[in-house]
């Protein structure tokens, strides 16, 4: 029997902790409402590179190395490097893994990468398969924009539902021993597709997945929103958040003031008149930047983080397919 399973989707963990984390963001993100929670801001979002893919890789690699420093570790001290990003063949992750020299597990869950990575790392550590695991992700406005949408300088008018890809990298070390908040439960979500076909409205495509994972988590663990100090979604942004609260409400779950969304928080309305931010780093920065620091200050003790990802590709979108969503949840508890 799987002794650590709790209900149908959730696992219960005892030992893993986040013993070091680093968020490294671009200037636009640094100037936003969450700017003061990030560990470092790069003044030039291209980071001196002409090619944005190289810049994205730099964000991921530097965040990973700085997270190791924060944990007081060297590369050889970690057993696995789990990383994912939005680019084809997750190149930012794999190319960063070249110089680390650690067994690499490449993952893809679009903008839910942070929770998938942290959840897998926590399970590896809790199962005794690893002592320490390095987890990282990154996204870059230009790299993602030109892959999923259009050339950068093309005259495109963004719609009110559009989200702006955040630029930055974020990384964390999950370990069995050390100081830091614990990852106590993990609920990996199902792929949910309710037929939203508008690539300019990813929040609406992902909201059903977030609601599905949220309800699964509550029914598996027997908890309610009242058991958490904060319920953080990744990048549903303003439009998706509204739908998420409606869907949760229909199932009898009232989130009230406990719900916060990373995508809706990273930019001020003046910076981004559309729905908010997106990108793999969006939820990672909200968890490893905002949540960890507020937990350290004692404002939050128990947080449910459920980033969401939109799993379409430019090709499936051109072929008229809808946008499948996924949401993975982790529970963070203060020491």
């Amino acid at each position: 029997m799987a002794a650590k399973r709790l209900g149908q989707f959730t696992v219960q963990l005892s030992s893993p902790r986040i013993v070091g984390a680093f968020t490294l963001m671009g200037p636009r993100e640094g100037a936003g409402p969450l700017g003061r929670y990030f560990d470092a801001i790069v003044d030039d979002y291209m980071w001196g590179e002409i090619q944005p893919e190289k810049a994205e890789r730099k964000y991921l690699e530097h965040a990973a190395r700085r997270a190791l420093e924060r944990a007081g570790l060297r590369e050889t001290d970690v057993d696995y490097f789990i990383a994912g990003d939005l680019l084809n063949q997750i190149v930012s992750s794999t190319y960063s893994a070249r110089s680390l020299g650690v067994p690499h597990l490449g993952i893809f869950a679009a903008c839910a990468t942070s929770a998938l990575g942290l959840g897998l790392a926590a399970m590896l550590v809790d199962g005794g398969f690893a002592r320490r695991v390095l987890v990282a992700t990154a996204s870059h406005y230009q790299a993602v924009e030109r892959q999923y949408r259009y050339p950068i300088e093309l005259n495109i008018q963004r719609k009110p539902t559009n989200q702006w890809t955040a630029t930055g990298g974020a990384a964390a070390v999950v370990a069995a021993e050390g100081e830091g908040p614990r990852i106590t439960q993990v609920t990996f979500g199902r792929v949910v597709d309710w037929g939203v076909k508008d690539a300019n409205d990813m929040g609406s495509a992902m909201a059903p997945a977030a609601a599905d994972t949220l309800l699964r988590h509550f029914s598996d663990t027997g908890t309610t929103p009242g058991d958490y100090d904060l319920i953080l979604t990744g990048d549903l942004a303003k439009v998706g958040s509204k739908l998420f609260r409606v869907l949760a409400g229909r199932a009898g779950v009232t989130l009230g003031g406990k719900h916060m969304d990373g995508g809706a928080s990273i930019y001020s309305p003046k910076q981004q008149p559309g729905a908010g931010a997106s990108g793999a780093v969006c939820s990672a920065a909200a968890i490893l930047g905002y949540v960890l620091k507020e937990m350290a200050r004692g404002r939050y003790r128990k947080v449910l983080a459920l980033p969401t990802g939109c799993l379409h590709s430019p090709t499936t979108w051109q072929q008229g397919e809808s946008c499948p969503g996924v949401s993975h949840a982790i529970v963070l508890e203060g020491a």
């Binding site: 008018q157 009110p160 309710w194 037929g195 939203v196 059903p208 439009v239 509204k242 739908l243 409606v246």
Partner: peptide, 24 residues
């Protein structure tokens, strides 16, 4: 499931921020 989705897609349309046609 498909019927459920249709209802959701209507909800998406209903809650979507409306562009200001005159201004645009």
């Amino acid at each position: 499931a498909i019927d459920g989705h249709k209802e959701y897609q209507r909800l998406v349309k209903q809650l979507a921020p409306k562009p200001n046609a005159a201004k645009e």
